[in-house]
């Protein structure tokens, strides 16, 4: 078989210039990546091996911070709170956003208006929506307890009670289901209608069509939303920072909040860096597991499904 002469040795001047131009074009991005992302990532790993109070030079301590994590009860509490949040808010959000997307995919009047209404909360800045939810959860004047009082129920203290604080934040997380809903909607509208027609010819009813056509065809979108929502859930911070400061009784001590407190309130940047690396590895592991599982449950139209 004929081969081209070694491309490495015989690049034409034009090709070389084009390559140079190409590199120059990506240089700003490359520099940004190096300076603002790669270097801080590597630096954070180095800091995780130090005792670093931010305002004093770091002192190398080896793996001491990582060993300390094992004995730190608040680390385990933060991990527990975050994991509960991830395994509850993520599936709840996925199911609710999928259900809304299915509704929004129907031919109903003012559907564009409904879609806008459901999507709108995602446009509200987190700080603003957090303040709004503080009011909603206010046990005395809040919307939630006022509604409950109408039906004769005296609502709980919500954020003020250690048993209700985390569920409150999980409920609040459903406020932004409009984002994944929009992605689901795009996916639903991309399902070829001939599949439904074929199913109807086979005598499939609404439920069978959903189960045999819609759901399998949507699995790549569900997979994408699952990965994204899971990562966001692991990194949740602002809500607890503003609303509860991790309380009461550490009931909402999210991992990133604990990390922040260590870095900037308790002068333990080295320990916080170790926390960050553990979180990174945890997210990496969970993402890898979900990716691995995708071979079983995600169906790509262009592929022959492996069995």
């Amino acid at each position: 078989m004929a081969t081209f002469p070694s491309a490495r040795k015989s690049k034409s001047p034009v090709a070389q210039r084009e390559a140079l131009e190409g590199y120059l074009f990506i240089l700003p991005w490359l520099l940004g990546l190096l300076i603002f992302i790669l270097v801080p990532i590597i630096a954070s790993f180095y800091f995780s091996l130090t005792s670093f109070e931010v305002v004093k030079p770091p002192i190398f301590v080896g793996l001491e911070n990582y060993v300390r994590l094992i004995h730190d009860q608040l680390f385990w509490q933060a991990l527990k709170v975050t994991c509960i949040y991830v395994v509850t808010s993520t599936p709840l959000g996925l199911i609710l956003s999928f259900a809304i997307a299915l509704l929004m995919n129907q031919k109903v009047r003012f559907v564009s208006l409904w879609r806008t209404i459901f999507y709108m909360p995602t446009l509200v800045p987190v700080i603003a929506s957090t303040m709004l939810w503080l009011w909603i959860f206010n046990p005395q004047f809040g919307l939630l307890n006022t509604l409950l009082r109408y039906v004769g129920i005296e609502g709980p203290l919500w954020l003020g009670h250690s048993q209700w604080a985390l569920p409150s934040l999980i409920i609040m997380s459903l406020w932004t289901v409009g984002g994944p809903m929009l992605i689901y909607l795009a996916g639903l509208q991309g399902i070829p209608t001939d599949l439904y027609e074929a199913a109807e010819v086979d005598g499939a009813g609404a439920w069978a069509k959903f189960w045999a056509v819609t759901l399998p065809m949507m699995t790549p979108v569900i997979f994408f939303n699952l990965i994204m929502n899971m990562i966001f859930a692991f990194q949740v911070f602002t809500q607890a920072f503003i609303m509860t400061q991790g309380g009461p009784r550490y009931a909402t001590l999210f991992y990133v909040l604990y990390l922040y407190q260590n870095a900037f309130k308790f002068f333990r940047m080295g320990y916080a860096a170790a926390l960050a690396w553990v979180l990174f590895l945890a997210i990496l592991l969970m993402t890898a597991l979900v990716f691995r599982s995708s071979a079983i449950w995600v169906f790509y139209e262009g592929e022959v499904r492996k069995r």
Partner: peptide, 18 residues
């Protein structure tokens, strides 16, 4: 800040009756 946070976390349970 660290011990204030610890005291605050625990004493908040008094006011909620927990």
């Amino acid at each position: 800040d660290e011990w204030w946070a610890a005291v605050s976390q625990e004493t908040s349970a008094i006011w909620s009756g927990e």
